[in-house]
């Protein structure tokens, strides 16, 4: 039987568990590195601080507010704020 195994082995092993492991790791690691690079440590605190200032003047719900720090080509970083304003909520 061992002799038979030896000849049939090659075919079965085309997709090995090791290659699955590598593929899964490449995807998750790339994903995690991306979010790591995009999100500096101060971003959560910055978000809270900006929200606090905004709320002194207008009503902003958590859902109508988003913040994004994007790394563009070269040394350019773009901090993007997206705030949805609702008429009835304006305080003037």
């Amino acid at each position: 039987m061992a002799l038979l195994d030896y000849f049939t082995r090659k075919k079965e092993k085309q997709v090995t568990t090791a290659s699955k492991a590598k593929e899964r790791l490449q995807i998750i690691v790339a994903h995690e590195r991306n979010s790591r690079n995009k999100q500096p440590d101060y971003l959560p605190q910055l978000t809270q601080d900006i929200l606090q200032v905004l709320r002194k003047y207008i009503k902003v719900s958590d859902e109508s507010f988003s913040i994004n720090l994007d790394k563009k080509e070269g040394d350019l970083n773009v901090l993007e704020l997206n705030i949805e304003l609702h008429d009835e909520n304006n305080s003037n």
Binding site: K13, T16, T17, A18, S19, A21, K22, L25
Partner: peptide, 9 residues
């Protein structure tokens, strides 16, 4: 045997 990540991986 394809059961473990290689050094290169």
């Amino acid at each position: 045997e394809g059961e473990m990540l290689s050094v290169e991986d």
